[in-house]
């Protein structure tokens, strides 16, 4: 024993002798921290780049003497090549397909969420949830194939000649299925976040499971569900491939889901996929559309985030 103590002491004397508590400059630490900081704020630059580039090209478009805001927001024909700048020709299709998508995904997604959160046993949940996750993981171009070659023919067998081969109905329906898992999983999170005490309070008053779920849990989770809906709308507005494949090629100011029409995203995809020369009016007009898309989805996402944060505070 004694020997060991002596040994340790001598070791200390060799290497831990000096006690210098002054702040040391650790250069490599600083460099690493600098690099990490840069990585952290790179995303800010991405946003700035999006706003700057989209804005710059869009400004070139709006700076054309022929293009006025009155024409842009006030007319319904879109063909920049021949002086028609009515964005409504594209917005109408975006609104129509998104509305159909939400009409499908909101009730189905919410109902699925209620079932998963309130009714399903853990075992059943572990089977059902992955299926929704698969649905969420399917690339949108595959949904496009499905819309054009499966859903449209089926719709056609009911609606006959009224339905054009490319139509907003089929694209909207399939988009609804695509968004369903998103709505469902976000709503489920919101429902599960409702404290158990609230459910017990309802049960203790002789409420059935349905009454508890619909009249107590659902209203309590409403803001979280609202956030899910907003994100869903944002996804629907920004979705490209389904509409590019199945909704139609060519601007058409129409709210009739049976007709073919081109959404803002579908238009960007079609025009940019062709031969597009820089600095042409077509090129610049695409950036004007993209800027609108970006701003609309940005606002929707911000609202949704704000709602979710509020909702979290409520129960934490």
């Amino acid at each position: 024993m004694k020997e060991e103590v002596i040994h340790l002491k001598s070791l200390e004397a060799q290497s831990f002798r000096h006690f210098d508590l002054k702040k040391k400059l650790r250069i490599s630490e600083s460099i690493i921290q600098g690099l990490l900081f840069f990585a952290g704020i790179l995303s800010i630059f991405v946003t700035i780049a999006i706003v700057y580039e989209l804005g710059k090209e869009a400004m070139l478009f709006f700076a054309l003497p022929d293009v006025t805001f009155a024409k842009f927001f006030g007319t319904t024909k879109w063909q920049p090549g021949i002086g028609q700048y009515g964005i409504w020709a594209l917005v109408s299709a975006t609104l129509t397909t998104s509305t159909i998508a939400m009409l499908i995904s909101l009730p189905l997604g919410l109902a699925s969420a209620i079932y998963l959160s309130e009714y399903a046993s853990p075992r059943l949940r572990s089977i059902l949830k992955p299926i929704l996750e698969i649905l969420a993981g399917i690339p949108t171009v595959v949904y496009g194939y499905f819309a054009l070659l499966f859903v449209t023919p089926i719709l056609k067998s009911f609606l006959g000649e009224d339905l054009s081969v490319y139509n907003m109905l089929s694209a909207g329906l399939v988009m609804g299925i695509m968004i369903l898992p998103l709505i469902s999983s976000m709503s489920e999170d919101a429902l599960s976040a409702v404290p158990r005490a609230l459910r017990e309070g309802a049960y203790a008053m002789g409420a059935t499971k349905l009454e508890t779920s619909l009249q107590v849990v659902l209203p309590a989770a409403l803001s979280g569900i609202g956030a899910a809906v907003i994100i869903g709308i944002s996804r629907a507005v920004g979705e490209t491939m389904i509409v590019a494949v199945a909704a139609g090629a060519g601007p058409n100011f129409s709210f009739n889901p049976l007709e073919a029409a081109e959404t803002m995203t579908g238009h960007i995809a079609r025009i940019s996929g062709g031969d597009l020369s820089y600095n042409s009016i077509d090129y610049n007009s695409l950036f004007a559309i993209a800027l609108m898309l970006f701003l609309v989805t940005l606002v929707l996402n911000l609202i949704s985030q704000w709602v979710v944060n509020k909702f979290r505070e409520q129960y934490e």
Binding site: S43, V46, T47, E53, L54, I268, L286, A290, F294
Partner: peptide, 25 residues
């Protein structure tokens, strides 16, 4: 918190907008 919000937002930007960014930049 701005950086964080910005990242969450970027996750929700439509992919075609990234395409336009890629085209321009």
């Amino acid at each position: 918190s701005i950086v964080q919000t910005n990242i969450n937002n970027l996750a929700g930007v439509p992919s075609i907008v990234y395409g336009m960014l890629g085209l321009a930049v």
